[in-house]
Design a binder for these strands. Structure first.
Lengths: 188, 188
DNA sequence: TAAGTCATGTAATCGGTTACATGATTGC
DNA sequence: GCAATCATGTAACCGATTACATGACTTA
């Protein structure tokens, strides 16, 4: 369900082609929902057949022709209704934390190294988010124009979550370091 | 891939039936990976056919017979190898934040109400985590026995993440409240 | 010459959910 | 009597990923 509304949300700021939507999914909404081109094209066709968007062929010179989509008023209605709908708590699926769950089985030094490698990846992500945050620059939170309110809030969510991961990782690293002298041990 | 290793991880603390594994997935590892019974039973069969676990029928009186599984040494080898493997950054999928992304389209008061409802759900989750944390009670972090290190660290991760959501939600609520007098506006 | 971008798709597969089935026992 | 718990499954479906295909243009 979310995919169609993520697409409709993107289209509220103007017409976009499937390709352009695919690119947007690598940023912005993409932090909390993502999809590849192969999923986006059929979804756009479905949205059009349901009258929530309308497509228009745009011939281009020097590059392939494209088909751009505009959200219809019915599409906007369905989107705004959905936005206020209650959401179930997200059941996170995080491969890394499944690994952490078995850290008691392995050498603490090795676990520490794996943890720190993952921490570095998260730090890179944070830097990318911060760079985008700078684009909202100047504008103190209350002054963000309505069209950018949602993107701004979700970006802040992204930053907050990555920062909290880093804080947890530092804490976990401290606990692992205290065990470096102890041998690894299997459970129970 | 993660499902099989989540199951193997659970089996490191002793033999469990498919049903018991299903129950465990509602807590502990379940915070970062989850699966329903229908997925767990076939996976156990697959793990057994690959020699990573061995099953044993346990006749019971007064309740259905069950089949309990033990991790093999090959299973333990594969698990410990996997645990130290680098993990890709998780691409979160969060329906609620897809909605937040379009908060600029709706009445700030309605958005605020939706936000606060979701916040309350997260608070309940935090209370549940804290209750489990109390079971690790007394033991200061460095003293947690190795068999509980992983579960302890993931529980702390769960607590940290929920707390950071609450902090973000408070911040977002503050920003929305500052807009209560302004009319809703559709995107440019 | 090779890789990358723009642009849109099909096909096969997989992981996961929903719905359904069965059947005994225990607690309200 | 009804719902919940214990216990294990099958079948249909759906959302998402991987692999593959095409083809022109641009940049290294």
């Amino acid at each position: 369900m979310s995919l169609r509304f993520a697409i409709l949300g993107l289209l509220t700021s103007g017409e976009l082609s499937g390709y352009e939507i695919t690119r947007r999914f690598e940023q912005s909404v993409g932090y909390f929902w993502h999809a590849r081109a192969q999923q986006i094209y059929p979804e756009l066709a479905r949205l059009e057949s349901e009258g929530l968007v309308i497509g228009r062929a745009v011939p281009q010179a020097g590059r392939p022709d494209k088909r751009v989509y505009t959200i219809t008023s019915r599409g906007l209605d369905e989107l705004t209704a959905w936005v206020l709908t209650p959401s179930p708590l997200t059941l996170t699926k995080d491969e890394f934390l499944v690994k952490v769950w078995s850290y008691g089985l392995v050498d603490p030094a090795a676990a520490l190294a794996a943890l720190e490698q993952h921490r570095r990846q998260q730090e890179e992500r944070l830097a990318a988010y911060r760079a985008i945050e700078a684009a909202f620059e100047g504008a103190h939170p209350e002054a963000v124009p309505p069209a950018f309110l949602g993107p701004y809030l979700t970006l802040r969510a992204g930053i907050t979550f990555v920062e909290s991961f880093l804080a947890w990782a530092d804490d976990a690293a401290r606990i692992l370091r205290a065990r470096l002298t102890q041998p690894p041990q299997s459970a129970s």
